[in-house]
Design a protein around this nucleic acid. Structure first.
Lengths: 189, 189
DNA sequence: AGGAAGTATTGAACGATGTTCAATTTATAA
DNA sequence: TTATAAATTGAACATCGTTCAATACTTCCT
């Protein structure tokens, strides 16, 4: 209930508009009540972000069946990922923007959801980097995912100076094909 | 003077510790004085971040002379970039973390500094994608830079579950070589 | 039914935030 | 010296996260 209200506020107004008092008012309770369920606002935001990560994960899972070749699957991933971040700009922005205060580490139930996304990419790479090359597959998945992340992150904060709306997808496609081409070129060498 | 104090505070305590009152106290003035030089704290942070971007640019420029081949240069870039972000974690974190309030756009004098970084990569790619392929060079530079950005961004927020300290550099190296290999593979095809 | 024990919720209060602006101090010019 | 301009102040405002004694509500036993 709290999380739903928080998610709604976040989706429309962004992290800056997400305050304890606004959430409380939205659900008809007082601010103090929130602190019976969350130790502080950072933890609350973390839960909202976890939900966002779940949504992205589901979307990517759905997209993973779409293609046959690894390249097609990864392209679908990239597309789904970019679509997600565009449809729910503020929600995804919060995932990127939010940082825990100095010294505090991300809880396990949260990092787990990040790891799931890596695994998704990793699995898609199996046909290319089969058994025996787990290590390089792991690395390739992380690098490729990070690259995609960087692309959408910069696009989201409008730091890519993009003109047309489709060019992010085009760049993502280019990234996937080029990186995979590079992979097979260096592996078969 | 204001910016120097702000930068010092940011470097040691991060964005959360950077408050108008702390800056004022650090330089022996009152909070109100800051608002004679900056319209609000977001603009002040933007200026501090601009300085950080300048430092990174200078470091990358210095590194660009180190190598002969494009791959060597880009490797040096990646290395310098990662070193920068590691040496001044909080300063660079602020560049990534800070967002302007809804609706406000980044000023030109700021986006210009981001563009300079792209250009650096673009220039390094000239030997590979010479005259006549400006468009694909532009794209390659943006994609490659975004990828590097994503890598260091995830590494910085400890979302890569990295064990050893060197593996970020290793991943960056891998990214550069693989992407470049992919480039020449698809171009010469 | 009635009271005791436990749980959930409150809302006022605290310290800190960004920001404003009339009042004051300081510098400049006549 | 005095008049004008510029810089600086610091108290005040609204809002923030957070706390916690006091209140309201449930549950259960006699």
């Amino acid at each position: 209930m709290i999380l739903e209200a928080a998610r709604a506020i976040l989706a429309t107004d962004g992290l800056r508009g997400l305050t304890a008092r606004r959430i409380a008012k939205a659900i008809g309770y007082s601010p103090g009540t929130l602190y019976n369920f969350f130790t502080n606002i950072d933890e609350l935001i973390l839960h909202v972000n976890a939900k966002t990560l779940d949504v992205v994960y589901d979307r990517l899972s759905a997209a993973s069946g779409r293609g046959e070749t690894p390249e097609a699957v990864l392209r679908a991933f990239a597309r789904a990922y970019i679509d997600c971040t565009r449809e729910q700009t503020h929600l995804w922005d919060a995932v990127l923007e939010h940082r825990l205060p100095e010294g505090r580490e991300l809880p396990d139930w949260y990092t787990l959801r990040i790891g799931r996304l890596f695994s998704l990419v990793e699995d898609a790479l199996v046909p290319l980097l089969g058994p025996g090359s787990e290590e390089s597959r792991r690395r390739a998945a992380r690098v490729l995912w990070s690259a995609l992340h960087g692309l959408s992150s910069l696009a989201l904060s409008r730091k890519l100076e993009i003109v047309s709306e489709e060019s992010v997808e085009a760049m993502a496609d280019h990234l996937v094909t080029t990186y995979l081409a590079g992979l097979s070129a260096t592996v078969t060498r």
